[in-house]
Design a protein around this nucleic acid. Structure first.
Lengths: 325, 325
DNA sequence: GTAGGTTACTAATGCGCTTAAGTAGTGAGC
DNA sequence: GCTCACTACTTAAGCGCATTAGTAACCTAC
C-alpha cells in the first residue's frame, strides 16, 4: 500500500504561528494549567484555520494513552428508523463531550469486534446488548472499556417492553395471548427477553403463558400462524417488533381475518409505517433519543473513572394505542 | 480522562516468545523478504494466542504511515434493510483484503465527517454519494482517499432507477405519470436524481413530464396527494422509495382509491414489507451485495495507487412486477 | 583455510502527538 | 539591589509499532 502524500502536522502549524508544537497542543486542547496570552492563542488558531489542520487521531491516542473514539456495535438486524434516532442523539451527546462515534454493524461476516476495536483504537465500545464473555474479554484486552444500553438497572427494558405489550392487551380483556417470534436466529436473544416480559405479565394476571410461534415475513406463513392462534383460542398476539406485526396483519388479511375482531395485534418499536397500516398498529415505543443521551453519559462516566449506569426509569417505554387492538 | 490499565504490547509478546519485537512484527504481518524458520513462527503465534494480543491500530498507523481503517459515510436517512445487505458485503470484502470497516451515520448533529476521519485516522472514506467540495477537501487534508458508489460510470444508477420505474409503467400503457417526493430535505438530492430518470423516460416516450408532489408519511397528506394526482389525470405514480409508496397506498385506501385501478403505484429499493402490502408493491431493486463488493474493490485499488471505478452494468437494477401496477 | 553469499535474526530510528520538566524574563516586596 | 513567585513559553522524552540497516553464524566454492 502506498504511503499518502505528506499531510499537515502540528509542526507545520507551529512554524506558521511562530511557536513550538507544545504551545499549539496547549491551545488546541485548552490544556488546564497553561497560561497562553490571548494574542498567542489567536495566532495559533489562525494558523490552524489557514492550514486546515486536524490532529491525527492515531498520534494523539499514542501520546495520550487513550483515544477519543467510541465504537458502537449494532446488530445489523436491528437496523431501522428507531436506531437512527438513537445513534443521532448518542453521537451528538458524545460530540458535546469531545468524543467521536463510529459504528460497527455486527453479525455479518467480517472482522470480529475486538479486532475492529483494536484497528480503530477505540477507548470505549458501546453495545445495545451485552457481549458474550469472549468478546468482552477481547475488548478489554484491546484496551477498551465496555458499556451497554442494558447495563446496571437498564436490563429490564427488553423484558419491560414485553410486559407493556401484554399488560395493554390484558387491560383490554384478553385472556389468551400469543407471541410472534422473529425469523432470524440472531434476533431470538432479544425476542426471548421480550417474551419473558409477556410471560411475566400473564403470570401476574393469573392466565396461561403466551403461545409463541415462529414466523416469517411471508404471507402464507403468517396466514398459517394466524389460523393456528385462532384455533388455539388466542385472541391477541404480541409481535416481536412492528415489522413482524405488520406482516401478521397482512397474513391475517390473506386468511380473511380482521384485527382486532378476530385477533388483536400489538407491535413494538413504533416505526413510521406503523401509523399507516390497515388498521393502524398499536405498539410500544420508548424514547430512543433518551437512550442515546443516557448511553453517552455512561461512556463519559466510564472514561472519567466512574461507574457506568443507565436508569430504566429514564427510558420511559409507553404504549401507543391504535386500532389494531 | 483516566489512562487505561497497561495492555499487552508487542514487546510482551516478543519476551514471551524469546525473540525481538521486529521478529514478532515480521511474523504477524507476513512481511515479504524476511525468512523466519517455521519453528520460530510457531513460537511467536503461540505467544500471541496465549497473551490474546492484538496490535494497536494507532501505533501501526503512525509507524506505517497509513491505517487499515475504511470509514463509510451513510446518510442516516438511507438506513433500511437494503443498506444492511450492502454494508455486510462491503465489510466482508474489505476484511478479505485485511481492511477494517467502520461507519459514520451522517447528517446528524455531531462531528463533521473530516473530524471523524481524523479521529479514527481512516485511510479511505467511502460514500454512497459524492461529498460536497469542502468535505472532500477536508478528508484529503486529513490524509484519506475518497471513493463513492457513484464514482466514474456508476452515477447513472439513481437516474436509472427512475428510468426503470417509468419504463415499466409506460410499458403497461400509462401516459400520465406522477412522482412522490420524500419529506426530508436531505433526501431530495437523491430523489431529484431519480426524478430526472423518470423525466428521461417520459421524454423518450413522447409524453408529458411527471407531476412531482411533495409528500409526508401521513395518511391525510397522502390522501390529498393521491386525489390531486387523480384530479390531474395522472394514472400512475413513481414513489421515491418503498416506504413512501407504502404510505401512498395507505393514503389511497383512506381516500377510497385502489391500486392499480385508480392509480398504479411503483416503489424502489424492495424492502421486505413491499411483498406484504395490499396490494403487494411493484418496485425496482438492485444487487446491493454486488455494490458492496465493487466498492471494496475500488477501495483496494485506491490504496494500491490505482484508479477507483465501479461499473454500473454490474449493479443490474431490475423491476419486480407485483399487483400495485 | 578463506572469501563471499545467505540465513536468522536484532538494534535503532522515527512516525505525530502529549506531557513533564525546564528556562528566561518580569514584577512585587523587602 | 536582591530574592522569590509567576508568566510565557520551549525542550525533550516516550507512547507502540513498522521498517531499515546491521550483525553473527553458517555453508559452499575455490
Amino acid at each position: 500500500m502506498t504511503r499518502p502524500a505528506k499531510r499537515t502536522t502540528i509542526a507545520d502549524v507551529a512554524r506558521a504561528a511562530g511557536v513550538s508544537p507544545a504551545t499549539v497542543s496547549f491551545v488546541l486542547n485548552d490544556t488546564p494549567g497553561q497560561s497562553i496570552p490571548e494574542e498567542t492563542r489567536s495566532r495559533v488558531l489562525e494558523a490552524v484555520r489557514r492550514l486546515d489542520y486536524r490532529p491525527r487521531g492515531s498520534a494523539r491516542s499514542l501520546a495520550a494513552g487513550r483515544s477519543d473514539v467510541v465504537l458502537l456495535s449494532i446488530p445489523h438486524l436491528s437496523i431501522g428508523p428507531g436506531i437512527t434516532r438513537f445513534v443521532e442523539q448518542f453521537a451528538a451527546s458524545l460530540a458535546d463531550a469531545g468524543l467521536t462515534l463510529v459504528t460497527h454493524l455486527a453479525g455479518a461476516p467480517g472482522r470480529p469486534l475486538p479486532d475492529v476495536c483494536a484497528a480503530v483504537d477505540a477507548s470505549v465500545v458501546a453495545g445495545l446488548d451485552p457481549f458474550d464473555e469472549d468478546t468482552a474479554r477481547g475488548l478489554r484486552r484491546a484496551g477498551a472499556d465496555v458499556v451497554f444500553t442494558t447495563d446496571v438497572e437498564a436490563r429490564p427494558t427488553l423484558r419491560g417492553m414485553g410486559r407493556l405489550q401484554a399488560e395493554h392487551l390484558i387491560a383490554l380483556g384478553h385472556r389468551r395471548l400469543g407471541y410472534a417470534m422473529p425469523e432470524h436466529p440472531l434476533l431470538r436473544k432479544i425476542a426471548d427477553e421480550r417474551l419473558l416480559g409477556v410471560a411475566d405479565a400473564c403470570a401476574q394476571a393469573g392466565i396461561d403463558p403466551p403461545l409463541a410461534l415462529d414466523t416469517k415475513l411471508d404471507l402464507t406463513a403468517m396466514a398459517r400462524a394466524a389460523r393456528r392462534w385462532r384455533r388455539e383460542s388466542v385472541t391477541a398476539v404480541c409481535a416481536y417488533n412492528d415489522e413482524v406485526a405488520i406482516a401478521l396483519l397482512a397474513g391475517m388479511r390473506h386468511a380473511r381475518m380482521t384485527a382486532p375482531g378476530d385477533l388483536a395485534v400489538m407491535g413494538a418499536d413504533d416505526i413510521p409505517l406503523a401509523r399507516l397500516t390497515d388498521p393502524p398498529l398499536s405498539t410500544v415505543a420508548f424514547d430512543l433519543e433518551k437512550v442515546g443521551r443516557s448511553l453517552a453519559e455512561a461512556v463519559v462516566a466510564t472514561l472519567s473513572g466512574g461507574k457506568p449506569r443507565v436508569s430504566p426509569a429514564s427510558l420511559s417505554p409507553h404504549v401507543i394505542h391504535r386500532a389494531s387492538t
